[in-house]
Design a protein around this nucleic acid. Structure first.
Length: 460
RNA sequence: GGAAAGAUGGCAGAGUGGUCUAUUGCGUCGGUCUUGAAAACCGAAGUACUGAAAGGUACCGGGGGUUCGAAUCCCUCUCUUUCCGCCA
C-alpha cells in the first residue's frame, strides 16, 4: 500500500497518479486517509498523555507501599479510575481510526511512474521493442541501439513497419496448424485425460511433450542461474498472511484455490512465497540487490474466462513458471528492472520466437505495479499475441505491506525496499508458440539453445 | 492422531507482581592501546507511533482478562521442540 509519507510529501502527485491508473474517487479517498490520520494522531496524543500520568501515579504507589505509607497509597489509587477510563476510550478511538485508514489504503492502488503511458486499457499499451521477425528482424529496423532500447514507440513510422511485417507473416503462415492439433498429432499433450482426472485447464503432458516441459524448466533455471539469480524451491501452498503481503489478498481472493480445512492457498505465482521470504525483515544494504529465481507450479481459478482465450494451452488452471524476484534499494531499482527486461528478452531471443515488449498503460497495469512491461510472443497459427511474461517494479508498494526494509549503509536508517518480479518464463504459451511457429514437414524444430536440454533437435 | 515441554532484544540465555526503557555471555559498531592486527579495557547499539526539541507512549509469540501496576498471575489462539503412533 501507499505510505503516508508519499501522500504528505506530494498529495497532488499521488492523486494525479491514481487518476492515471483510472482509480475512481482518488481525491476523496486521499482526503479521507488524511482525515483519519489526523483523528488517529489526536487520539494518540491524548492517550499517551493520560498513560504517562497513569504510569507516574503507579510508580509513586509502588514507592509509597515500600515506605509503608498505606493511606497515601490508597489515596493515589483512587485517582487512577478516571484516567483508566480515559485511556481505554482514547485507545479505542485510536485503533478505530487506524484500522479504518489501513482498510482504505488497502483499496488504493499503487501510483504509476511518469513514463507509464496514459490510457484506460490494453489498446493504449505502448510497444517499445519487436524482435525475431522472419527474414529481417524488426529489431534491426527500429532499435539499432540494442534490443532493450525501451524507447518510446514512434507511431508514425514504427506502426506502419509493424503492420507490414505482420501481414507478410500472416500471409506466409496461413497453413500452419494450431498447437492443440499439433499436440494430438505428435501425442504430446492429452487435454481429455486431464479433464478426466482433474478438470478443464489441467492438461496431461506425455512423452516428448513432458520432456519438452522439463527441458524448458531446466533451460530457464540455467539461464537465471547464469544471470546470478539464486534458485529457491519454495512451498506452493501459503498462508493468508503471505497472500496479503504480496497483494493477492484481499483483492483477488476468488482467483486463488483455497484449502478451507487448513486455511491455506495454492500459489498463483512463485512471487508469493519468494517475496514473502522477506516479510518483516530488515536487510543490510550490503546484501542488496537480492536476486532469486524459482520454478513452481502455479494455480489459478480463472473464474470468468471463456472462448478462444482458454483453448488449448492459452489459459490453464495449473501451469509451470519460472519467476525472477528482486529486492533492491530505491536508487537502484530502475537499473534492476532494466536488467530483468534484458534477461527475459534474452530468453525469447534464444528461443527464436517472434516477440514484442509492451509498456503497459496506466489503466491496464496491475493494482500493485508502478511500472510494468509485458512480453508477448506471436502465435503463428492463431494469429495473435500471447502474453508470456509480465515484469514489474512495485516501488515501495509491496514492501510497505510486507514490512520489507533495509538498513542504509550511509546513515543506518531503516528504509522501505523496492520489490520487483517477472516471469522468466511461463511455459504453456511458450510451448504453444514453439509448436506452432516451428512446425515443418519433418516435425517440430527445437531451437538450438534448447537442444542440449531436450536431447534432440526435433520432435518427430 | 495421543502426551509433555516451551515461545524473551542479531544469537544464546536469566528474570515468576513495583526504578525491567529486561541480568549476563557471544556477535556487531566506535574508542583507548599497537607500526598494523589480536588480546585487554572503556563506550554505543532494537522497532513503531508521537513531538520543533526535551521527552512521551506501545512492543518480552498473537488476542483477551485480573491489578493502582504484568515479561512475571489467569483464559484463549497460533507456532516450535521432544516422545509415541502412522507414513513417502
Amino acid at each position: 500500500m501507499l505510505t503516508l509519507k508519499q501522500i504528505y510529501d506530494d498529495k497532488a502527485r499521488v492523486i494525479a497518479g491514481l487518476e492515471k491508473k483510472h482509480f475512481a474517487g482518488a481525491a476523496e479517498a486521499i482526503d479521507e486517509v488524511l482525515r483519519l490520520d489526523a483523528e488517529r494522531k489526536s487520539a494518540q496524543q491524548a492517550k499517551d498523555a493520560a498513560a504517562a500520568e497513569m504510569n507516574k501515579i503507579s510508580k509513586s504507589i509502588g514507592a509509597l507501599m515500600a515506605q509503608g505509607k498505606r493511606e497515601e497509597a490508597e489515596a493515589a489509587k483512587a485517582q487512577t479510575g478516571a484516567l483508566k477510563a480515559q485511556i481505554a476510550e482514547y485507545d479505542v478511538k485510536m485503533s478505530e481510526a487506524e484500522e479504518a485508514q489501513t482498510k482504505l489504503l488497502l483499496t488504493i492502488p499503487n501510483i504509476p511512474y511518469d513514463i507509464v503511458p496514459e490510457g484506460a486499457s490494453a489498446e493504449d499499451n505502448l510497444a517499445v521493442t519487436i524482435g525475431n521477425w522472419p527474414n529481417q528482424p524488426m529489431i534491426d529496423a527500429i532499435a539499432k541501439d540494442g534490443a532493450v532500447a525501451l524507447r518510446d514507440w514512434d507511431s508514425a513510422t514504427d506502426e506502419k513497419i509493424a503492420e507490414e511485417k505482420l501481414s507478410i507473416l500472416n500471409s506466409q503462415l496461413s497453413t500452419k496448424l494450431p498447437h492443440w492439433e499439433l499436440a494430438k498429432k505428435y501425442n504430446l499433450i492429452d487435454f481429455d485425460l486431464g479433464v478426466k482426472i482433474s478438470g478443464a485447464g489441467f492438461p496431461v503432458y506425455i512423452g516428448q511433450g513432458a520432456r519438452l516441459q522439463r527441458a524448458l524448466i531446466n533451460f530457464f533455471l540455467a539461464e537465471a542461474n547464469k544471470a546470478g539469480y539464486t534458485e529457491i524451491m519454495p512451498p506452493t501452498v501459503v498462508n493468508a498472511a503471505s497472500g496479503y503481503g504480496t497483494g493477492q489478498l484481499p483483492d483477488k481472493e476468488g482467483q486463488m484455490y483455497h484449502c478451507e480445512v487448513d486455511d491455506l492457498y495454492l500459489i498463483p505465482t512463485a512471487e508469493v512465497p519468494v517475496t514473502n521470504l522477506y516479510r518483516d525483515v530488515i536487510i543490510d544494504e550490503a546484501q542488496l540487490p537480492i536476486k532469486n529465481c524459482a520454478y513452481t507450479e502455479c494455480f489459478r481459478r480463472e473464474a470468468g474466462s471463456y472462448g478462444k482465450d482458454v483453448r488449448g494451452l492459452n489459459r490453464l488452471h495449473e501451469f509451470s513458471k519460472i519467476e525472477i524476484v528482486r529486492i533492491d534499494t530505491p536508487e537502484h531499482s530502475d537499473a534492476s528492472h532494466k536488467e530483468m527486461l534484458k534477461h527475459v528478452e534474452g530468453l525469447l531471443q534464444k528461443l527464436e520466437l517472434p516477440y514484442r515488449i509492451l509498456r503497459l498503460s496506466g489503466g491496464d497495469m496491475s493494482f500493485t505495479a508502478a511500472l510494468c512491461y509485458d512480453f508477448e510472443v506471436y502465435s503463428e497459427a492463431q494469429h495473435r499475441w500471447l502474453e508470456v511474461s509480465s515484469t514489474s517494479n512495485f516501488d515501495t508498494y509491496q514492501a510497505n505491506r510486507l514490512k520489507c526494509r533495509y538498513r542504509r549503509a550511509e546513515d543506518k536508517k531503516v528504509t522501505l525496499c523496492h520489490t520487483l518480479n517477472g516471469s522468466a518464463l511461463a511455459l504453456p504459451r511458450i510451448v504453444a508458440a514453439l509448436l506452432e511457429n516451428n512446425q515443418c514437414p519433418e516435425g517440430i524444430r527445437i531451437p538450438a539453445a534448447l537442444q542440449p536440454f531436450f536431447g534432440d533437435d526435433m520432435i518427430r
